[in-house]
């Protein structure tokens, strides 16, 4: 029995999938969600095998939601549903990810479910990454049975040690498995590397201090800490903020 979750912001679209899944049989609909965050919360709790995920949704869209789903301990296979997203479809096609065009056909849905059942975890991760061409608005962090979505704007800094990356944000701290390099590349201009292991959000930068030993450190708004700036990156940082 394949455990399926339906995610779409439009009630009739969910109804359509429900009708078709009931006809196909041998699947169990374990949850329905109207937004990405809701889908993520359910998926962390109920661990679906397959998520039927609408690409265009308000808030974090389907593509971003798929990336967040991929950080789950047992990530589901994602099958995108879309009415007309030429660019997204191209991205899926090159990586042969499952996607369905609306109005959804029963035989296509059945075939996609059969294929999704066979995907392995590394394949799933690759597919999720391939679909994610745009910048995320949130970063997903896993906490036992839960996934927490942290808005990128609320992140103060990332700090990495050997295995994990710590995300420090306005409401606390979380661990993620992404590398600083990948985060820096994706999040772009707003985030600045100040140390081999530290990436800060420039929007929260409050000041740069020079200590007695001539080394610099930064102060971030909303955080009592100061973070050391490496000698190598100090020049770049000062140049950037014209100090």
């Amino acid at each position: 029995m394949l455990r399926v979750q339906i995610v779409d912001d439009e009630p009739p679209a969910r109804e359509r999938l429900r009708q078709l899944l009931e006809e196909i049989g041998s699947v169990q609909i374990i949850a329905e969600a109207a937004t990405g965050p809701e889908a993520l919360e359910q998926a962390a709790r109920l661990v679906p095998d397959v998520v039927l995920l609408d690409v265009r949704m308000p808030g974090p869209d389907g593509i971003e939601t798929a990336r967040h789903l991929s950080v789950l301990e047992e990530p589901p296979a994602v099958i995108f549903t879309t009415a007309y997203d030429q660019y997204a479809i191209n991205a899926f096609e090159t990586r042969a990810v499952g996607y369905l065009l609306k109005p959804v056909r029963r035989d296509k849905l059945a075939a996609a479910l059969a294929q999704a059942d066979r995907l392995t975890r590394p394949q799933l991760l690759r597919l999720a990454a391939a679909a994610g061409t745009s910048r995320r608005t949130h970063i997903a962090a896993r906490r036992r049975e839960q996934v927490r979505l942290i808005p990128v704007a609320e992140i103060l800094y990332f700090q990495s040690d050997q295995k994990y990356t710590t995300v420090r944000h306005l409401h606390g701290e979380d661990l993620i498995e992404e590398s600083l390099r990948a985060l820096e590349e994706e999040l772009g201009e707003r985030f600045v590397r100040i140390h081999r292991n530290t990436l800060i959000n420039a929007d929260h930068l409050q000041g740069i201090e020079r200590g007695g030993d001539g080394r610099y450190s930064v102060l971030l708004r909303g955080s009592a800490l100061t973070l050391p700036v490496s000698r190598r990156l100090a020049g770049e940082l000062l140049e950037r903020f014209r100090i």
Binding site: P12, A13, R16, K102, P103
Partner: peptide, 18 residues
Amino acid sequence: RPHFLFNSMNTIAALTRS
């Protein structure tokens, strides 16, 4: 918009039964 057309078709497909 094509998006509107296909979404409407999908809606109609669902309503045809219910």
